[in-house]
């Protein structure tokens, strides 16, 4: 019983991280119709910033992480996304693939293939016992941070002018521009907010997921792939459905890895085949509902993409 609760809480925390990434990817997709495969490399850059400043005060280290991720986000927008505005979605996706690969190569050349340890706040990795259930502080923190980020995002989107413009631009960019909404301002804002979220994930991920304690060139790559899949399965056209897709994916991965045995002779009998199970699930969902699981009856957007 207590084991079950522990597994569930861990799964929800993983879901929260994936949901954060899904929102970051979904925000940019909304205004740019661009699936940013390089999102994981933004997180990687942030994690490197943390790892290289392990000996600095933690706040300085985190500030640096944010600065690096935001600068990189802005650079991507100016150097790559902007010239690609009129390209087909496929070209854009392949181009972000290329950018992801470029950033990985740079990291590999600069820092080598061997991971660097990321130390943020070691205390957060210690467990706390609540009613016989051992939960690490970072697990609780992750869920709280995610909830706060979503609340802030809601306020931004519904209460501010730039948020209103972002929503309008993702629903109907042509009409929004005809009303005077500045496309570049809205896109830059979305890219920056998405960058802030990437930086937050960069801080959380090394503490929350034990396999991500080390940052290497392919840091957060697996997460990005699974989240991208989750976002499309949920329905990339809507921020909420994309987020739910990411969250569901995280919870599913968390639960399956908690319950499956760690070895087995045949496929799908152990947790090493977890990715297969997830991807099979995705294929089935896409076949049944190509427009996404959490979107109600809108084919058009995905078809166009």
């Amino acid at each position: 019983m207590t084991d079950d609760v522990q597994t569930l809480v861990d799964a929800v925390a993983l879901g929260s991280i994936y949901a954060l990434m899904a929102v970051g990817i979904g925000l940019v997709f909304g205004v740019l119709r661009l699936v940013n495969f390089a999102y994981g490399q933004l997180i990687m850059a942030g994690a490197y910033a943390l790892a290289l400043t392990n000996d600095q005060p933690v706040l300085l280290s985190i500030a640096l992480c944010f600065a690096v991720v935001l600068a990189l986000s802005l650079a991507l927008e100016l150097a790559a996304f902007r010239p690609l505005r009129r390209a087909s979605p496929t070209t854009m996706l392949v181009a972000t693939f290329a950018i992801s690969y470029l950033l990985q190569s740079i990291a590999l050349v600069k820092f080598g293939a061997i991971g660097k340890i990321v130390v943020v706040v070691p205390k957060l990795s210690e467990p706390v016992t609540i009613g016989g259930v051992h939960i690490r502080w970072i697990t609780i923190m992750t869920i709280i941070v995610a909830v706060l980020v979503f609340a802030a995002l809601m306020v931004l989107l519904t209460k501010t002018t730039i948020g209103l413009h972002m929503r309008a631009a993702s629903i109907d960019p042509a009409t929004a521009r005809l009303l005077g909404v500045r496309a570049n301002a809205v896109i830059t804002a979305a890219v920056l907010v998405s960058g802030v979220i990437a930086a937050i994930v960069a801080v959380i991920l090394p503490m929350a997921v034990p396999e991500r304690l080390l940052v290497g060139p392919d840091f957060a790559l697996r997460e990005t792939i699974i989240v991208l899949v989750g976002v499309v399965v949920g329905g990339i056209d809507r921020l909420l459905s994309a987020t739910l897709g990411g969250f569901t994916m995280g919870v599913a991965v968390g639960l399956l890895s908690g319950y499956l045995p760690s070895s087995g002779a045949w496929p799908f009998t152990s947790s090493v085949y977890l990715d297969s199970a997830v991807f099979m699930l995705v294929i089935i969902v896409l076949l049944i509902r190509p427009e996404g699981l959490f979107v109600r009856g809108r084919h058009a957007a995905l078809e166009r993409v």
Binding site: T161, L164, H165, R167, A168, I171, D172, T175, A176, L179, G180, V181, R182
Partner: peptide, 15 residues
């Protein structure tokens, strides 16, 4: 913008 409120539609015009 059918998913936005009437007032939000008007506020878009302020852009």
């Amino acid at each position: 913008f059918t998913e936005l409120t009437v007032e939000e539609n008007l506020r878009l015009g302020l852009a």
